[in-house]
Design a protein around this nucleic acid. Structure first.
Lengths: 286, 286
DNA sequence: GATTATTTTATACTGACTGTATAAAAATTT
DNA sequence: AAATTTTTATACAGTCAGTATAAAATAATC
C-alpha cells in the first residue's frame, strides 16, 4: 500500500480511537499524518471512506484469525466457537474499537449506514453458520435469532461490565459464558419449537461466496505482479500463487506464509480478501 | 409548560425522528417552530439539552405506562413482564425513537453520554427488579446479567427483523418470545449456578427512591400553586394534593386523574416525576 | 393606564467544520 | 532530460453551533 495512504490510515486510526470519530476533524488527521489536504482527498473521498477502510481491514483481520483458530479443530466443538467469539472481543478491546463501531452503527451518513448493515449481516451470517456447525442442522431454524442473541448478549455484557467494574473485562470468561448460555437456551428452544424469526432469511451479503482453489493461483499471480515495489510481500504472494498451483502444496509452508501476511498491516484490502480465501481452503490441502 | 418551549420541543421532536438528530440543525428547528434563535437558547443551553428534554419526557411516559400495566396484577406473572417490555417497544415504534436512542447512546458529547448512562442504568435496574419479582429471590444473583440479556436480545431482534422483513414488527410476539427465552435460560442458569457478573452491582441511579405517601400531598400542593395559569392541570394537581391527604382517598378517582395527567404533553418533567410517584403508591390505597 | 420587567425577534458575528479548487513544488516514471 | 504524477500550500464556499445585542412585543406590577 502507498506509504502516504498508510500514514493517513495510521493517523486517522489513532485519532478515531482516542478522540472518537466525529470529534476528529480532517485537519487533525492531516496534522497527525503530516500530510496535506490534497493528499487526503487523493486517497479518500471523505472522512467516512477513511473510516470504512480502517474497519474493513480490521474485519478482515478478525475473519482471518477466526479461520486460523478453527484450523484442525472439530467444527462442532463449542469451545472453538467461544474462542472465535473471544477473538472479536479481544481485538475490539486491544484496538479500542467500541467507539468506532458505535460511531458507525447508528450513523446518519447513508454510506456508513449501508456499510454497517453489510458488516452486521456478515457477522450474523457467520455466527449463524457456526451455530449450525456446533448444534447440528436441527438448530438451523433457530440459528439466525440465536446469532442475534449471542451478538446482543456479548455487547450488553461488555457494556454492563464497564459500568459495574473498573477491572479489565474478562473477555475469555465472557465468551465462554455466552456460549454456555447459548447452549442452554437453544437446546430448550429446539425442544419447544419456539421461534420468532422463523424461516425469514437475511438478504445475502457479498464476500461469503468462496473463490475456488483452482482460481486462486491466477488471482494471486495477478496481484503479485502489481507488487513489484514491495519486495517482501511480492515474494510471499508470488510463492503462494505457484505453491497452490502444484499438485500437492506444502500445507505447513502455506500456513506459515499466510500467518506472516496476516500480520502485515501494509496490505491492500483486495489482497486480504484473497488471503482469507486461501485460509478457507487450507484444510483441503494434504 | 411555556407554550414557546412546547413549540420548540414539538418541532425538534418532529425533525429528530424524521431527519435524525445530527442532520437536524438548530435553524431547522427554529424554522419549524416559527421561533427565533434567542428564544431557543432561552430555554435550552444547547441542541443536546433539547434532545434530553424530549427523551426525559418519553422515559417518564414509559415508566408511567408500565406502572399502570402492573396495577392490580400479580407481580410474578411473566405475562405482565412481557406486557411491560412491550410498552417500550410499542412506544419506540410509534414514536420512531430508535434513531434517537441511536444518536444518544453512542454520542461523543459528554453530557449526552452521561445522560444515556443514566437512562440505561435505570432500565437495567428496572428489568432486574422485575426479574426478581417474576422468578423469585433465587434469581437475584443472576438478575443483572439477565437484564442485559433481555435488553440486548430485544434490541437485536428488532434490528434483525428490519433486515429480514418489510412487515411491521410483531412487537407483542417479540416481547413474549424474549420472556419465554428468559424463563428457559434463567431456570437452567440458577440450576447450574453459572454466573458472569457475579455480585457486582450498578452504581445507583437517582429517581429510583420513593417519595413517601405522606410527603406527596405537600409536594403536589406546592407544585399546584405554580400552575395558576394552567387552569386544567392546576385543578387536577390540586385535587390530587387534597385527595391524597384525606383518610381514605378514592382510588378510582385518583387513578382516573393520573391517567388524564399522563396523557398531557404539556406538563413539566418535575411534575411528571411526582405523578410517577403517585402511581407507585396507588395500590396502597383502598 | 402608565411604567417597569421580561420575553421575543432580527441580525450580525465568531470560530470550527467539510469539501473544492488551483498553482507551484517535489518526486517518479519514462 | 523530459514528461507525468503526486504532494503541498493556500484560498475559498458553504454549513454548522453558539454568542451578542439592540429593538420590538408582550406580560406584570403599581
Amino acid at each position: 500500500m502507498n506509504p502516504k495512504k498508510q500514514q493517513i490510515l495510521t493517523a486517522a486510526y489513532k485519532l478515531f480511537i482516542n478522540k472518537g470519530y466525529n470529534p476528529s476533524s480532517i485537519q487533525d488527521i492531516l496534522d497527525e499524518a503530516g500530510v496535506s489536504k490534497g493528499t487526503f482527498y487523493n486517497y479518500f473521498g471523505s472522512k467516512s471512506e477513511c473510516l470504512m477502510a480502517i474497519m474493513e481491514s480490521i474485519g478482515s483481520e478478525i475473519r482471518q484469525q477466526r479461520l486460523a483458530a478453527a484450523l484442525g479443530m472439530l467444527t462442532n466443538d463449542p469451545e472453538v466457537l467461544a474462542e472465535q467469539l473471544y477473538i472479536r472481543i479481544k481485538l475490539n478491546l486491544e484496538k479500542n474499537l467500541f467507539s468506532l463501531y458505535e460511531s458507525i452503527f447508528y450513523s446518519q451518513d447513508p454510506e456508513l449506514k449501508s456499510f454497517s448493515v453489510k458488516q452486521y449481516t456478515l457477522e450474523m451470517e457467520w455466527i449463524s453458520s457456526r451455530i449450525v456447525d456446533v448444534f447440528g442442522k436441527e438448530a438451523a431454524p433457530y440459528a439466525l435469532e440465536n446469532a442475534a442473541f449471542v451478538h446482543g448478549y456479548v455487547q450488553q455484557l461488555i457494556h454492563l461490565w464497564r459500568l459495574v467494574s473498573i477491572d479489565e473485562l474478562p473477555a475469555e470468561k465472557l465468551s465462554s459464558f455466552v456460549v454456555r448460555r447459548l447452549q442452554a437456551t437453544i437446546t430448550l428452544q429446539i425442544a419447544a419449537k419456539d421461534s420468532f424469526i422463523g424461516k425469514l432469511k437475511l438478504p445475502i451479503a457479498t464476500l461469503s461466496e468462496l473463490i475456488s482453489l483452482e482460481e486462486l493461483p491466477t488471482m494471486l499471480k495477478a496481484y503479485a505482479d502489481k507488487l513489484k515495489t514491495h519486495a517482501n510481500t511480492h515474494q510471499l504472494v508470488q510463492f503462494l500463487a505457484t505453491e497452490l498451483a502444484i499438485e500437492v502444496p506444502r500445507k505447513a509452508l502455506v500456513e506459515s506464509v499466510l500467518t506472516t501476511l496476516a500480520n502485515d498491516k501494509q496490505i491492500e484490502s483486495e489482497l486480504s480478501i484473497l488471503i482469507e480465501q486461501v485460509w478457507k481452503h487450507l484444510d483441503e490441502l494434504a
